[in-house]
Structure formats: C-alpha cells, structure tokens
C-alpha cells in the first residue's frame, strides 16, 4: 500500500502536469484557429459520447504544418535557430577549453576555488547576466567607449541587436555548462601519459593532439550538447540582445502565441521544435551511456 502511494503521487503529478499538457499541445496543433474562447476548433465534446469523439477526430488535420512549410518565415526561423545554436556552441567550446584545461592543470589547493568561481555565475539570475551585456554592447555602451578611447575605432560598432550579440550572450551564459564536463574529463587524465609521449619524442603540441584532446572527447561532446540543446529553443537572449532582425524559433513561438494569438500555429511550431531536438537528445543520451560504461 505504501509502495503504491509512493509510486502513484509523483507519477500522477507528472501525468497531469507534463504528459497531458503535452498531448493538449499536440491536439491543438492539429486544430484550426477560430474566433472564439478558447480560440481554436474543434472542441472535444465528451457529452455526445463516441459520436462526439469521432466528429472531433475527423476535424483534426495537418493544415498548420502545411502552413508552416509554405511560409518562408518559419523555415528561416528554424534554420537561423540551428545556425545560431551551432556557431555559438563551437564558440563556447573555443572559449571554454583553455579555461577548463588551465583549471585541470592548476595546483590542487586552487581547484576548489576555481570551480566555485566558475559555478558562481550559474547561481546568479540568467536574466541579469543577459541584461548586463545590453549596457556593454550598445552603441553608447562601455565597449564602444573603451575602444574609441583607445583609438582602435573611430566610429562606434553596431553590436547590440545583431547576431554577434546573440553569440556573445549564449557563450557567456552557457560557458559553465561547457567548462565543467571538459574539466572533469581533463582532471582524470593521467599525467604520466604525457610524460611518456614526450620521452618518446612528441612535442608538447603533438602530445596534446594525440593524448589530451582525444581523452577529453567525452567531456567535449557532453558540453556541446548541454549548450546546443537549450540554445536552439532560447528566448531571452535573442529578444534582449538580438533585436527584431534576429529570428529564433523560441521568439517566433512566443510572438505567435502572445501577439498573434494563433494557438494552433504556436502549438505546431512547438511540435516541430521538439522534432528537431529529438535527434540531438538521443545522441546525447547515447554518449552519456557510453561514458558511463567506459567509466566502469
């Protein structure tokens, strides 16, 4: 009896507040927009029994998905989300790797402090961390004034409300997610392997490419997924730093829902976003499983 309650409580909670809402999105994505409350059609009428369910099912169609595939805006938004996510994941890797490497090489008594310094920004508000870049990147901002003061540029650079600002925002906010898995892979590295390689005539750079880099591969892959998956659906960063010119699918969904009040299309956008994410998520889980088996 106790066991039943123990299983049933979290189970039913998740069914009611995760599974059912998800099925509702799926259903509405197959419905048509209507000038009513709620603004979509058909409504499921259980009072009519079987006939009601049948009539309801016959009204569902893939019209919204056809609409999405014919409208340029959505293709562009999906492609630009993918492009932004890929580029910023690679940039994050480039920034994170040297930091993680240096942390793993630091003296033992320094490591806990360095780790805390990497994790600390993660506990501060995400929104504030994104916002802090608005004051830096604007035309009148700190960065432009600094660069003009040093004489590197004479005209202010336009950075805010461009894709560059979105890249910077994603690299900045997701950096800890990339540093930590790479650090934990590098930390386990056996130093004597590098000494052996150098004794056998490798240069330092060769030793890095032949030993350190391959052995940190699991950390790199995990970090890339941890950045890439949330970056695709990102909403806050493109809307604060990207301006109206930067299309990202999370922003399109938001506007479709709140500004256009087109629930069926917003739901269809959500379903396609999930379909795009399924492949990286499955690959990520495989990688994790492999790493776990290798660790045993």
């Amino acid at each position: 009896m106790r066991r039943l309650i123990l299983i049933a409580v979290p189970y039913l909670w998740l069914v009611a507040l995760f599974l059912i809402p998800f099925l509702i999105v799926l259903k509405i994505s197959l419905s048509d927009v209507a000038l009513a409350r709620p603004p979509y059609f058909p409504q499921l009428d259980l009072a009519e029994g079987w006939a009601g369910i049948k009539a309801f099912l016959s009204e569902l169609d893939f019209e919204n998905f056809v609409f999405l595939s014919t409208d340029d805006l959505y293709w562009k938004a999906y492609l630009s989300s993918l492009q932004i996510a890929v580029v910023s994941t690679l940039l994050t890797l480039l920034v994170a790797y040297p930091i993680a490497y240096a942390m793993a090489r630091a003296a033992d008594e320094w490591r806990p402090t360095l780790l805390m310094l990497v994790i600390l920004p993660f506990w501060t508000s995400f929104l504030i961390r994104v916002y802090s870049w608005m004051g830096i990147l604007s035309t009148e901002g700190v960065l432009n004034r600094f660069l003009m003061w040093t004489g590197i540029i004479s005209e202010p650079l336009i950075l805010l409300n461009t894709k560059i600002a979105v890249y910077i925002g994603i690299v900045y906010t997701y950096l800890p997610f990339m540093i930590l898995p790479i650090y934990s892979a590098l930390e386990k590295l056996d130093e004597s392997l590098l000494e052996a390689a150098e004794d056998l005539g490798c240069s330092r750079l060769q030793a890095f490419w032949l030993i350190t880099f391959p052995l940190s591969r699991n950390g790199i892959v995990a970090g890339c997924f941890l950045v890439f998956i949330p970056a695709i659906g990102e909403f806050v960063i493109p809307s604060l730093l990207g301006g109206s010119g930067t299309l990202m699918i999370g922003k399109v969904l938001w506007e479709e829902f709140f500004s256009n009040r087109d629930w069926p299309v917003a739901s269809a956008v959500a379903i396609i976003l999930l379909l795009i994410l399924i492949i990286p998520i499955i690959l990520f889980q495989r990688n994790e499983q492999k790493a776990r088996e290798a660790g045993r």
Partner: peptide, 17 residues
C-alpha cells in the same frame, strides 16, 4: 531537455482547458 517555451505553452493550455 524540453525548451522552456514549450513547457510554458503546454501548461498554459492545460490551465485554460
């Protein structure tokens, strides 16, 4: 791993429903 916009949207549709 669910994007926040989808979690938010689906819960809102449930609450309205």
């Amino acid at each position: 791993v669910m994007p926040e916009v989808i979690t938010g949207l689906s819960l809102l549709l449930l609450f309205i429903g």
